[in-house]
Simulated scan of single mutants.
Amino acid sequence: KVLVLVSVVSSLLVTTQEPLVDVSTSAVLETCFDVIFVMEFLCRCISSPSKRIYVQDPFNWCDMLAALGLPLRASVGFVLQPLSSLEAPTVQQVLLLLFLPIFRFLKLLRYFESFHLLVDAGKNSIAALPVLFYTMAVITLLSSSAIYLVESRDNIPSLPHSIWLALVTMTTVGYGDYAPKSTGGYFVVATLTGVSVLFLALPVGIIGHVFTACWESRAQVLLMNRVRKCLVKWGYTIKDLKILVEYVDADGDGTLNLPEFIELIRQMRIGLTSDSAVDLFMLFDDDHSGLVDYNEFLRHIFPDQYVEYIQDKQQEDEEMRSSSKRVS
């Protein structure tokens, strides 16, 4: 973490109007950082059980992008001139001076497991956003048309200028480049301000409520994400899980009690402690029966594959019934 932060600060020191670090010193530091990040990327990629899954994981894309710094720096001769002295910077210089620090900083995302909660809150609140955006567009068009009608052309030259004034008013930005001057304009903008304050509280409240719900169950959500990521990382499929469940099911009743479930987690070797395995067992036990079957396990870990599994099973049952009818 410290190395990433130091590398970002080092990159920003040469983008000031008067560079705070000599270009040669900066080139040595940046090259060292690039070499370290390339080695980190190669080590992660080589040690990954599944290279395909490693490449598909968005949290690893930042490692790949940060590793591009070394070949890009080599293509420009390693020494970069300060950004303020470049009248027409090349693509490589723009990437190295402006975007590479961002790629490096995004490497820290993997250390913030709670970031998943923000992503989940955004996904869960997406369904309510289209109608809110539509309502906002209606309010903007109505208010901008009213402003355009009551204001003179010297003040608001066109309808797009009126729309711009309505937008900056609704979002409470208020740049001040355009403002009402007539009494009617003041009335319309004042009304729009009051309406927008009430309206913009809706999406904030919805997203805040969803995030609060996710945050209250953060322990279970983060544990589930961790388990799912480990299983995907090690290449486990639903067939593998079924074989493991049958293997640890000592009494052969098709369900797992707590000791059997802990043994399952141990056999999977995904790095969970016994306490985490107990928490996971309680999370999977939907009916609080003290037992977890294969369907419950699969439904929580791989919900999409669980739906496909149930559909395939139903189709197989229908085919068996059809064949039995034909035989009879």
Rank of each mutant, 00 (worst) to 15 (best):
A250Y: 10
L264T: 05
L298T: 09
V292T: 07
V232P: 00
V307S: 05
D285C: 09
Q305G: 11
V292N: 02
F281M: 07
V307G: 01
H300S: 13
D251M: 05
D293A: 07
D249Y: 06
T255G: 01
M320D: 11
D312M: 06
L291H: 13
Q267W: 01
Q315D: 14
D249R: 08
F297R: 03
P303N: 09
E319V: 01
V307Q: 08
I262F: 03
D312Q: 15
V278L: 10
T273W: 03
Q314S: 04
I270N: 03
H300T: 12
D317A: 15
L231M: 15
K233L: 10
A277H: 04
T237K: 11
V245L: 13
K239T: 13
I262K: 15
Y309T: 07
A277D: 06
D253Y: 03
E296S: 14
Y294Q: 02
E319N: 11
L272H: 01
V248Q: 07
L272G: 03
A277C: 12
F284I: 13
L264C: 13
I243A: 13
V245G: 01
L241W: 08
T273M: 08
V278P: 04
D275K: 11
D304A: 12
D304Y: 09
D251R: 11
N257A: 08
S289A: 14
Q267N: 09
V307W: 01
D279R: 12
L231C: 05
I270T: 09
F261P: 07
D240E: 12
V292C: 07
